[in-house]
């Protein structure tokens, strides 16, 4: 049976996390949204990786799940407050996805790939992986904004939101990359390109 998480292209841990975080990658329609969500994921993943072992030593296994989730929720809540203060216009639209950082990351980013093993001694490794993850995220969101709206705004304007309409896609097909199905298509082609690049490197 074909499963998206079990295929060979998912051998890159960063790519694995990115493809697993589709619910957060799909709303990244602008560069600004991309860095708000990307930084949120990275901060959340690093803090959880650093704090969960400490929590594990303090409480029993029966309470560990609920407390870990509460900790995850609190980190996300603090980040949400920060986003509300810095980007009040974007915060409203992104609030459900900011919550998803906790729900998704809790079960995914920290427990998977190079971010899997928790511990302060591995923090530099987490930071490096998180940096690559963030760069991948920013690249993807920037590409969507450039292809969809024609330029990189680096700032929340009506540009990208105004084109989030299926009718406009009929006239300007490239705008589809701002819609969820366009994100799926773009992600598929980006992974294929990444593979081609890897293959050429090996051959070289």
């Amino acid at each position: 049976m074909n499963q998206p998480n079990e295929r060979p292209s998912a051998s890159n841990p960063v790519l694995m996390v990115v493809t697993g975080l589709c619910p957060l990658l799909i709303p990244s329609v602008t560069f600004q949204r991309g860095y708000i969500l990307g930084i949120g994921v990275v901060v959340h993943a690093i803090l959880l990786a650093a704090l969960l072992p400490v929590l594990g030593r303090m409480v029993g296994s029966s309470l560990q799940f609920s407390l870990s989730l509460a900790l995850s929720g609190m980190i996300t809540a603090l980040y949400s407050v920060g986003v509300r203060l810095a980007f009040p216009a974007e915060a409203y639209g992104l609030s459900p996805f900011l919550g998803l950082i906790a729900v998704n990351c809790f079960g995914l980013s920290v427990l998977r790939g190079s971010l899997r093993q928790a511990g302060l001694d591995r923090l530099p490794e987490y930071a490096r992986s998180a940096g690559i993850l963030l760069l991948t995220w920013l690249g993807f969101s920037a590409l969507r904004e450039v292809l969809g709206s024609g330029f990189l705004t680096l700032y929340a304007t009506e540009t990208s939101r105004a084109v989030l309409d299926l009718r406009s896609v009929i006239v300007f097909p490239l705008r589809s990359v701002l819609l969820p199905f366009g994100a799926f298509l773009l992600l598929g082609y980006c992974i294929a390109l990444y593979r081609l690049r890897g293959k050429r490197r090996k051959e070289g």
Binding site: R7, P8, L166, S176, F184, L187, G188
Partner: peptide, 26 residues
Amino acid sequence: VPPALQGTPLWFISAGLVAMAFSGID
């Protein structure tokens, strides 16, 4: 299917095409 597209890329591309069809039923 070209090797680069096999697996995950093809899953996402297929999902995108099905999603495009479904998005019309709003």
